[in-house]
Design a protein around this nucleic acid. Structure first.
Lengths: 229, 229, 229, 229
DNA sequence: TATGAATGAGTTTTCATTCAT
DNA sequence: AATGAATGAAAACTCATTCAT
């Protein structure tokens, strides 16, 4: 569903005057019927993410999504099989968007520590990892426990993500710069970032993004600079 | 709600023959009316935790809880204001139970690294932190974003928990054995355990408890043994 | 149910410090078991009248009545067949109480206009016709439309009441002091007092009792002093 | 809610073969979707009035209303916020309907006694003041004691009604034809009609409409023709 | 007598889905 | 494609009544 240029066509987070954030579409309503149709479909996905972030999957009603997307209730059926399908597509969009953003910004052929540093900057200090996206993210993730469709979406994403991180730490390890067990280091790091994101998704005021990033950098130092094994 | 001896009166997790886990009450149905009443109330809480772990808060119906507890639907009203109140009480029970267990098993006046090692053992290798409890735990936690009652329960718990961890790392710091910033170390550690628990709650086969514990021990080594600042 | 001396044993209306009125029992809890039992039964009737006045018959729950009477929920069954029976008994009590009060205070062998004047004073200017009693009264009356038991209670009361009024106007008529049709005068008067009570029962501030009484006196003047037929 | 021509579009009372009365819609189910929707909403209001007249507000279930209106249970939500909102709308309809009917039939610039006579004829001898409407009317009115929404509806209606009556009696007074206090006469008259309606609403066989009207006419005579003050 | 735990039928409310226009 | 009226199943909530103690 996510297309190459989805990120360029839309801004899905906006700083509101009151300081909160909000998914919005930056795209002007297009002219041709075909474009309008596609645009409305995307509006439905955005509205879904926003609702899920604000109230959770099961508190979100079709009525709310459609009214937020300024379309009629029945339109859901034209673009999606049902509410469940819409949820899965919205979750996919989120994963694809995160993934695309990291792919674009974090180059794996850099110096591995530099790349990891970049990753941390990218994931904690940009609009891509904001409280709204994170809230939707964790709502979907928790729900995936009882939802095979969502489970599949996350499985694929997680494999990619762990592989990505693996590549970076492995290169550090090969350069002799990692003084701990590779897998355990990766699991420690991935768990820690999950935990940080989770806490931020529940209470965005708990840490500043900068502080969260600096916690990650302490982690890198601790795992790279200690006495040889 | 949680009483001094709640852990002694009940075992709330059981390895089923098929390998899954299940909340059960180890107590025999008592004799006196007063005890039976209290016992049934507890059964309702257990049934709630089990349902929430299996299907999430909003997928759990009152009908399911009561039939699992072998009581009539109306009894909920007798002991709790409504479904929401029951959920909050169940969440409190979980928090109190975790807390009591750690308080009982992890002595803060030990050598801090020993105490932390103990904490890790306690939290990853005992029936208290099992996939069922964790699943309920995260369901409640995620739901707390949109639920002020749950938010309050977690706030109180989290203050206690962070304070607990703080005491341990602070003593290590004072002994000159912590070579990183105290607060960042604590946040890194707490986030990492949250992340490990979260992943285990979604897929209990991802890591063995022993592996999760060893990841934590690597963390301790990394943060204690590296080159002086 | 109502006994000869029910009015002497109890005060069922009390001016609260805040200006509102409230049914209370003036009787001290008696000593002997037999008296206590009777006393509790009366407390249940009072509590019922108060609840019905405040919230209407169908908004009043057994739980509320018993907690207001400071008895356990199950006690209702010992004294009354069920909730419906309690309502009917409470309604009867009210009718009997009104009736006894008028019987006691309005002597039919006085001069008829004096007796009617007395009736008006009695029914608008005493604690017996207060907003609480009236509110319960009309709640029961409206409900009697769909309740044969209540219908019967009111039928009996109304026959007595109309007969009472009839006697008074008839004597005025026989004295040549009534210049209108006897039955129509009676129906006009009874309807007017019903209407006044109804309006007072819904909004006690609408008229002062004195004003309501003076409206009645205007009525007497109008129907007695106009030009001969 | 009530539109200019609601009375023309519908007959809401029908003499059944068995002698009872029944709200019915005289309108044929219309053709266009918009009209059908509006028609169904009105059917729901009619069904509500009928149920309330027959059983009272709290005895009336949503299920009964919708089955009487031949629509599904869920449609209530489509047109009204909830059951309470439907009740309020039905009450408003009743008030508006009474008011429109009187406005249409009773001209205030006639001779005041003629207008009052007309009012009496209109309110006791037409289908607009029938036992069904009156039963619903008093059910709502009594309920308004505990219902702020209904209270508001009645307040507005009552202000109009008393103002209307005031105009008529005031003109009689100015013509020197009223030999009693103006306000007390009005309150006596309004109370008397309330009482007559109330008694008719509880037992329609108590008086014939003609008799009730003649009672009112006696009242006019008594209050207009007696000896000068 | 008196209690209050327990029941379960009855009712309202919610909301995804369907479908005629 | 798009609308929104209409449906009805699912769920929570209410509460009179029952009954063991």
């Amino acid at each position: 569903m996510a297309t190459e240029n989805q990120s360029e066509n839309n801004i899905y987070r906006n700083e509101e005057p009151n300081g909160s954030t909000r998914f919005v579409s930056s795209r002007i309503k297009p002219k041709t019927q075909k474009e309008i149709t596609e645009w409305r479909k995307r509006e439905l996905v955005f509205a879904t993410l926003l609702c899920v972030a604000e109230k959770g999957i099961h508190q979100t009603t079709v009525e709310e999504i459609t009214s937020r997307a300024n379309v009629s209730r029945g339109l859901i059926r034209h673009h999606f099989k049902n509410k469940q399908d819409l949820m899965v597509q919205a979750c996919k969009y989120l994963c694809d968007d995160f993934r695309m953003h990291i792919d674009k910004n974090v180059k794996t052929n850099d110096d591995p520590w530099k790349a990891l540093d970049h990753l941390v900057t990218t994931t904690f200090e940009t609009p891509y990892f904001n409280d709204v996206s994170l809230a939707a993210w964790f709502s979907f993730w928790i729900a995936s426990r009882n939802d095979d469709d969502l489970k599949l979406v996350y499985k694929e994403y997680y494999e990619w993500y762990r592989g990505y991180i693996h590549k970076l730490f492995e290169r550090a390890d090969k350069l002799g710069q990692l003084h701990t067990d590779l897998d355990q280091t990766i699991d420690a790091f991935v768990s820690m970032t999950d935990g940080l994101w989770l806490e931020l998704s529940i209470d965005v005021t708990k840490y500043s993004p900068e502080y969260a990033a600096s916690v990650c950098r302490e982690f890198f130092k601790a795992f790279s600079q200690r006495m040889p094994k």
